[in-house]
Every structure is written in structure tokens, then in C-alpha cells.
Amino acid sequence: MWTWLRTLLPELGGTGNPPLGDRGGLDWLQVMDNQRIAVLRRGGLMNLAAAPSFVLLWGIACLGLFYYALKPWLLLLATCSLLFSLGLFRRYRLIADTPTSTLSSGAQGYVELQGKAALPDGVGFRGLPHLPVTVWLPGYVEDEPFVLDDGKGRCLLYPRGAEIIACPGDSHYSWLNAIYPGQTLYALGELHTLRSVGDSDEQRERLAALLAEWKSNPLQLRRCFDVDGNGQIDPDEWQQVLVAAQRWVTDDLREQQRAPGTHVMDGAKAGQLFLITNIPPEKLAGRYRQMAFVHLLYWLSCLLAMLII
């Protein structure tokens, strides 16, 4: 059991002592500690700046620097507050200004999607033993793709490189930040649909395979293409066979390209945000807007404080 868990938890591999308790259960404190770091890492600096506790500490730090009249440090904090404010405002606008797309339309480009989280086909369990099934568990299962199902279609989300903000589920452990199957998910990123390309190599291969299949049934071939009835396929008739096979393959590939493709969201273009969260977008955007305003106030207050000192 420990060997298996060790492969799943590389972060814990070097500790020497297994995190599993003597009674065979998980070391919950270790799991929580490990997860906390991962949540900060995947959420990024801006989400840390949007956390109420961080904002409170930041304000206390500003007051302390004002009290001790440390001007250069106040300037540093003011500059950071300005950058936090702009970054959070940008996030707020991105969420507010990106229209929701449906997967049935498959609109390509930078879109937002809303739907239910699900495990990919063929995956029965993901996460840690003794915990509910999760589709994404920070610190443990972070880069494996999972599905967003909006009721009209399914999209495969590749979370590597995404900013992921997960809050504990209502019906699960209140301390575990994870995304569970069936939870409402919000994703913001570049959507594209993968289809069969049908390039010239594939076309050639299919043509060769089709001709081989037809040749394996000479009776049928003669019945269809032996126009002069001499019992064999002449060079002219063979040309007709080639044309027919070519048409057959082209039609087949065209049909294949028309078939519904696989929707994938695996990043965003430079300067745009690739965000996955199980927090409702209105709530998240509201939080970003409020915290952007608070950091703006900190910036102005720090500058005012510098003037007073």
C-alpha cells in the first residue's frame, strides 16, 4: 500500500518516514500540509493577494511601516499594492467580459465554459484512498485531464499550466480543496476542437488499403469495372477503378472531418488567463473586484502616509 502511495505522492517520498499512520490510515496532517502548499502554488500570487487574510496582513504591514516611518519599504508595499490591484482588476474584467459558450456550438477561441466536472471515460477512480473520488486534487493529482460536461457536449480540460482555484465541496470534507465529479465547474481559456486531419499520407494509405481489399475480391471487381466483358481489368478499366477508389476515400475522409470532434481546452494565448475553478464566476469576479479596490486604497494610503512622514 505504501509503495503504491509513494509513487502517487512524490512530494512525500524524501521524508524517510511513511506518512501512513501505524493503523493503516492516511496521515491527515501531512495531507493537509501538502495540499496547502499546492493550493498556493496552483492558485498563483494574484489569488493569494485576493485572500481576505492576506489583505488583512498586508494592511497591518502597511500600518506598521507607517508607525516606524520606513519610507522605502512603504514605497515597495505601495508599488506591490498597485500591481495587485491592476492584476486583480484584469482578472475581474476577464471573467465579466468573456461570454459563455456552449459546447454544442463549439465556438473556437477564448471562451468561458460552465458545466459539471467528470472523470474521463475509462477512469473509475482518481484521488487518494480513504478520500472521496476527485477529478483534481492539489498536491496529488494535478496534471491529469478531466472532463467538463455542459449538458450539450463534453470538453477535455488539461489543467497543466492553468490557474486552478478549488474550494471545499459542500458535501465533502470541509478542509479539502479539491474538484469532485458532479461539481459545477467554470473554465476560462482557449477552446479548440480536434478533428481527423485527413492529410495526404492518410489518404494514400487508405487508398492503398481499399485497392488491396478490392483486389482480394476479383470477381466483384470484374463485375463492377470490366466494361468490355473480356474477363480481365484492362489498363483503361484500371484507371476507372483508381478514380472510383479515390472518390470513395475522399468522401469517407470528408464525412470523418464533419463528425463531431473532441473539444479541448489546454491553455490560453499570451497575456490571457487560463482559469479553472469550482467557485461560481459571479462570486469570484466579485471577490477580485473588491480586493482590487482594497489594494488600490492601500496604494493611495501608502503614498499619503509617505507624504505625512
Binding site: 514605497l75 498597485l82 482588476f89 509617505m306 507624504l307
Partner: peptide, 20 residues
């Protein structure tokens, strides 16, 4: 001068906001 620093900071903030 502190006044100049504050002025430059405000100006910088305004420019960054316009760029955003």
C-alpha cells in the same frame, strides 16, 4: 524628494492602468 516620488508613482499607476 518625497513629493516627486509620489508624483512619479501616481503617474506610473495611471500609465499602467491606461495600458491595461
Amino acid at each position: 524628494n518625497t513629493g516627486l516620488i509620489i508624483f512619479l508613482s501616481l503617474l506610473g499607476g495611471l500609465v499602467l492602468w491606461a495600458i491595461l
